[in-house]
Simulated scan of single mutants.
Amino acid sequence: MISKAHLRNYEIALITTTEALNHPNYDLHLAHLEQQFTTHLIPNADVKTISRLTQSLRTDIMVLPDGDAFVWKEAWKLRQKRHGSVSAVVMRPNSSGKGSIKPFIIELIKRLLLTLANMQPDVIAVPLKSSLWTSQNNQIGVPDPVSFHPDRHAPSMIETAIASNPDRKWLGILGALSARKNIDLVLRSARIVDRSDFGIVLAGHMEPAVAEKIQDKLYETRKKGIEIIVCNTFLTDGELDAILQKLHCVVLAHSNEGPSGILGKAVEAGTFILAAGAKSLREDCRLLPESSHWSPLNEQDLADAIDVALTYPTPIPKQLNTGAIFSESLLQQKG
């Protein structure tokens, strides 16, 4: 968003917290763009605080990349004082299915609030969709913005391991290595695949609880003869893309719904996609019949799917261009 707004010669203000500014992800993804924006610190990243600051800055467009709280709590209210228009991305438009309220009721409420928000003369509220999504029948949404610009080399430990095992096919779980990605299940499934001519790459920042949970699984899987590379660190986009390009297959075994940024990158990299669990990923795989495979999220089905994925040929890379669509949708002024 910053790069696209800069190309339009917009004056850009980044409104954030000290905590976010000190996070490693800031250095990885935004520090190199600091000459393109001014920074304004706020104590808490709540919508009312941000709105007050945008009024004092007299912004023409306020973009909320994580706009769920704004859409569900504020956007639908009448006679709100705002300067300029607001573009909000709804990151979690679907029900999580938790709690005592039925998921379909939550779904209906969210749809209603989204409709009411977009009826405001100064609000654009769009749910985040898969990077493969295209608008049909006037559906509202924005595709997950994908960028794919690999560094010349992957991190050295991965580059060396893959180069020294040219006959081995590599599966990978990349990015934020959280409980959502079910790494322990993937390792258990890998152990019961009736072959050991493949390796596994775990690359990205791993949550401490996940790292502790998989220690025994790593040992047991390696005993089977399956090589595992663990690169537990924050990755730049270029590093992640370079690793993805080295893999035969990326594994997306997700226990919750929602778009996967890794999926779009895999399409651009020409890397096979093995997805499991989330129905949203199943829909994506239906659009990629020659370069993906979906399975239920259980040990045996996932093991069978790994075996199938290893037999597929390397897909042809495909450019998605979703970054331009994403930014064009949010940088337009309403009202």
Rank of each mutant, 00 (worst) to 15 (best):
W170S: 07
W133D: 11
R79H: 13
Q245A: 11
I109D: 05
D184P: 04
V193Y: 04
I192S: 15
E299S: 05
L247S: 02
T311Y: 07
E74I: 06
P103M: 14
I140M: 10
A278G: 10
I109E: 07
D307G: 15
I325Y: 11
L281N: 12
D184L: 08
I12M: 05
E227N: 14
E268H: 03
R286H: 09
S147R: 14
S85H: 04
I262K: 00
G261R: 03
G335S: 05
L57H: 01
D144V: 11
T18R: 15
V90K: 01
I109S: 09
H6M: 13
I42G: 00
R282A: 12
H149S: 14
A117C: 11
H293L: 12
G277V: 05
D68G: 12
L235I: 04
R79L: 09
L302F: 06
Q139R: 10
A75L: 07
E220D: 07
G99K: 11
V142N: 00
Y26A: 02
E34V: 10
T236F: 11
D284Q: 00
I101R: 12
P24M: 04
C249W: 03
H83R: 02
L177H: 04
T18D: 13
N25Q: 13
N256T: 13
R222F: 02
A203Y: 08
I228R: 13
L128D: 01
I50W: 01
A275G: 07
I243Y: 10
L41Y: 10
R282V: 01
L247E: 04
I273G: 03
V89N: 13
Q332C: 00
P65V: 07
S51I: 08
A278H: 10
I183H: 10
S96G: 12
A176L: 15
Q245K: 14
K129Q: 13
D151S: 15
N44E: 14
V210Q: 07
T59I: 00
G67F: 02
G199A: 06
L252G: 12
I42P: 03
T115Q: 04
